[in-house]
Simulated assay, not measured.
Amino acid sequence: MSTRIGVITFPGTLDDVDASRAVRYAGAEPVALWHGDHDLQEVDAVVVPGGFSYGDYLRAGAIASLAPIMREVVEGAAKGLPVLGICNGFQILCEAGLLPGALTRNEKLHFVCRDQKLRVENADTAWTSGFTRDEEILVPVKNAEGRFVAAPDTLKALEAEGRVVFRYVGGNPNGSAADIAGVASENGRVVGLMPHPEHAIDLLTGPSEQGLGLFTSVLGTLAGAPAA
């Protein structure tokens, strides 16, 4: 039986189709999950994709974090379910309390869209186990509220505990604290990042194929881990 990875769609989600495509490229079965449902359909992992959920009218990710499906994701994560949040998905995971910190307006208040180098700071999470530490990957970034911020004590703890997963290299596109592009939960099962690995899985459509490594990583993690 193939690994089933759920991909959530909220009103305003843009990248659910791309995330599902990345799941297929990795060799798993994508399962569409609807924001208004309470059913994770027994998936093995979940991707919360990018977009502008609910138009970002209140605060990016704030409304989506209260959706029925997110209650199930929070409960699943507590039992070890691997969860990946990309861009707006990262914002949603922070708003839901699954990841620390917050994503705020970019430093120069401009929407940023460009190919971006990232350095893998932690290759021991559920979504980065296929990389090596200090490996650099090239993926697109596109956001207006991508500046990661956190209280000084939280930033200190993230660094000390090795929970910074990705860091911007060659320029910080949004003014994130300490060039942080992605962070992980304490157990490494939940990861969020602002850049878009699902847009870097095929040289025909992206700047590299290196983003696929996040999706193949979780398959390896699941193959080697007991069922949650």
Rank of each mutant, 00 (worst) to 15 (best):
A223L: 06
E159W: 04
F148K: 05
I180F: 04
E75A: 11
H196R: 10
A150Y: 11
V191M: 06
G213M: 07
D16K: 04
H35D: 12
F10P: 01
Q210W: 05
V17R: 10
A22D: 01
M1A: 14
L84Q: 00
T9W: 11
D15H: 13
G188N: 04
V164E: 00
L193C: 15
F215H: 04
F148T: 03
A102P: 03
A225M: 13
E121S: 11
L109C: 11
F215M: 11
L14T: 08
G51H: 03
V141N: 10
T13C: 06
G175R: 05
P82G: 08
N172W: 03
E186L: 13
D115Y: 12
R147G: 07
G27T: 09
R105V: 11
F111W: 12
G211Y: 05
N122Y: 07
A22P: 00
A28S: 08
T205V: 15
E198L: 13
A178E: 13
E198Y: 11
N88E: 09
P152D: 08
P152H: 02
E145Q: 14
T3W: 12
T154L: 02
D153P: 01
F166W: 10
D16M: 06
G101Q: 08
G192C: 08
S217N: 07
T154W: 04
A60F: 01
D179K: 04
G27S: 09
F90W: 07
L99M: 10
K108M: 11
R119Q: 14
D56M: 10
A22Y: 01
K117C: 12
G170P: 07
N88T: 08
D134G: 03
V149G: 02
E121F: 00
D37M: 13
C113G: 11
T221K: 04
E136T: 10
E121G: 01
P173Q: 04
D56Q: 09
K156S: 14
G61P: 07
T13N: 02
L138G: 10
R189F: 04
L138F: 12
G213Q: 15
G175H: 03
P68N: 09
E198D: 11
V190R: 00
P173T: 03
W34K: 14
V112M: 12
A227P: 01
I201A: 02
N122L: 05
S2V: 13
G55N: 14
R119D: 10
L66H: 14
F52N: 06
Y54I: 12
G50T: 08
K156P: 02
I201D: 00
N174W: 05
T125I: 04
G162W: 09
F10D: 00
V165L: 07
G50K: 05
Y25H: 14
D115L: 06
A78H: 11
V23D: 00
E136Y: 02
A228E: 13
L222N: 01
P173F: 01
G188S: 08
M1L: 12
R71K: 12
G211T: 07
P152V: 03
S185H: 14
A28H: 03
P173V: 05
A28V: 06
E209D: 08
L33C: 06
R4Y: 05
E136I: 05
S2H: 13
A64I: 10
F90M: 05
Q91P: 08
A64T: 05
C87L: 13
